[in-house]
């Protein structure tokens, strides 16, 4: 359905925006390394079914490979700044202070409590869904602490939030047309979209209405 396609395209766009800007400006100002590392972990634990011959479709396969490869590539790209631009790297590390072990532990507990089947793959899948729902927090925390946002970060978060928002409509669509519902994905997806709601409000004020100014 269209919500799903545009949701996935929006997700692709967010990665494209991030990669393009980092590569063309050679700047990592405002990007949370922790959020990017968490996304790499999300895709590594979710797409293990790539190795189990669980074929869904070519679309599904190619997207999984892309998300897995691009998330790892972004982590490597950011790590290269460690030697390439140590000052910028150090600045990022100093701002990137969110304690992610709570997110990891919380997602692990949620994965162990809520899953479709008690198998390693299913628990890791559930862990990845819960972790994805909170993985943006270090980035949002960094944004609110610095009080100013690079247009890169703002557009990146907007595209990512739009992807989650569209997925909710995709689930409503699928519930109506296929009577299909994945409770874990839906609950985690709503949690994740809620994470962005404050950001959407700021984005609306700042970008759409053109109010330049500091973020609260």
């Amino acid at each position: 359905n269209l919500f799903r396609i545009f949701g996935d395209l929006s997700h692709l766009a967010s990665i494209g925006i991030l990669l393009h800007t980092v590569r063309s400006t050679q700047s990592i100002d405002g990007i949370s390394f922790k959020t990017q590392a968490l996304y790499a972990l999300v895709f590594m634990t979710r797409y293990l079914d790539l190795f189990t011959w669980h074929w869904v479709s070519l679309y599904n396969f190619l997207m999984k490979v892309f998300f897995l490869a691009s998330s790892v590539y972004i982590v490597v790209l950011l790590q290269q700044f460690r030697t390439k631009n140590p000052i910028a790297y150090k600045e990022m590390v100093l701002q990137d202070t969110f304690k992610i072990h709570f997110l990891l532990l919380g997602s692990l507990v949620a994965g162990l409590c809520f899953h479709h089947r008690f198998t390693l793959l299913e628990i890791l899948w559930s862990f990845s869904v819960w972790l994805e729902s909170v993985a943006i927090l270090p980035q949002l925390f960094m944004l609110s602490k610095s009080g100013r946002a690079q247009s890169l970060t703002v557009h990146y978060i907007f595209a990512l939030g739009l992807y989650r928002f569209l997925y909710i409509f995709n689930w409503i669509w699928r519930y109506v047309s296929e009577a299909r519902v994945d409770k874990i994905a839906v609950v985690a997806g709503i949690v994740q979209t809620a994470m962005y709601s404050d950001f959407f409000y700021i984005y609306y004020k700042k970008v759409i209405r053109g109010n330049a100014g500091n973020l609260p």
């Binding site: 799903r4 996935d8 997700h11 979710r46 079914d49 669980h54 869904v56 479709s57 599904n60 997207m63 999984k64 998300f67 479709h116 899948w125 997925y167 995709n170 519930y175 009577a179 299909r180 519902v181 994945d182 409770k183 994905a185």
Partner: peptide
């Protein structure tokens, strides 16, 4: 509503 048998979403 039925539960998904496979994870066909990303």
């Amino acid at each position: 509503a039925k539960r998904p048998a496979v994870h066909d979403e990303l």
